[in-house]
Design a protein around this nucleic acid. Structure first.
Lengths: 123, 123
DNA sequence: CTGTATCCGATATGATACTG
DNA sequence: CAGTATCATATCGGATACAG
């Protein structure tokens, strides 16, 4: 499958292409709080995600080396997901985004404006 | 239009929802280098983007307060786009992502691996 | 010049059912 | 438990034509 666009001299877009899917930053955040999480735990922590999409996200994160998948062929099988070093580093960088998001939100609410984090939802 | 997902306790996803579209980080980067850019200039600097998508991105960035649109009702009209303070701040934060992307890329190439920034393109 | 309107195909997501 | 398969739907991006 070819990407929707290429070669625009913007390396960060490649990274964003990997974290950009819905739920992905949240998955990274959840994994950053635990040594590891099993598929079912992630599924329970993100009630609105379907198994298919959760699988897609995890496979993509695994392919890009951000998440490690530890498959234990027990019966029934148990699978543990954890952040790789890169995954942890990416999560650290994303904290800057989170702080900005929270601060803007607070500013907007103080001014009784629609918070920037809700603008998309309000479209 | 409703968003694809909501309310997952992850503020940064709201921000990412705004910068996540293809081209958007690049647009922010272009605007960060200039006082302002006109629609046609942006269009020329991003040859592969269609007018429709460029308009969509700019409208979204404007709605979220990241970009300022200065419409001059001359004949023909001239429109200048520039970063707001928030847009500039977001761009700063994104530089961290860019640096990580470039470093990982260099590491992967040294090891003769497929660079992480090309994994999506290789799918 | 700076867009808008429209149609269309590609892609992504969601729901459901099913399996090793 | 941890997914996969399938189908239906929704959204997105691209191309073209056109307008104030």
């Amino acid at each position: 499958m070819a990407p929707k666009h290429e070669s625009n001299q913007c390396p960060m877009e490649s990274i964003l292409g990997q974290i950009m899917g819905p739920w992905t930053p949240y998955i990274l955040w959840l994994l950053s709080n635990e040594e590891s999480l099993r598929f079912g735990q992630l599924s329970a922590l993100i009630p609105d995600i379907s198994a298919k999409v959760l699988t897609d996200r995890l496979r993509k994160l695994e392919a890009s080396g951000l998440v490690h998948r530890d498959y234990q062929p027990t019966v029934p099988p148990t699978v543990y997901y954890s952040l790789t070093d890169r995954g942890a580093e990416l999560h650290e960088v994303l904290q800057g985004l989170n702080e900005v998001a929270l601060r803007w939100d607070a500013e907007d609410r103080k001014k009784r404006l629609i918070p920037v984090t809700e603008i998309i939802a309000a479209e």
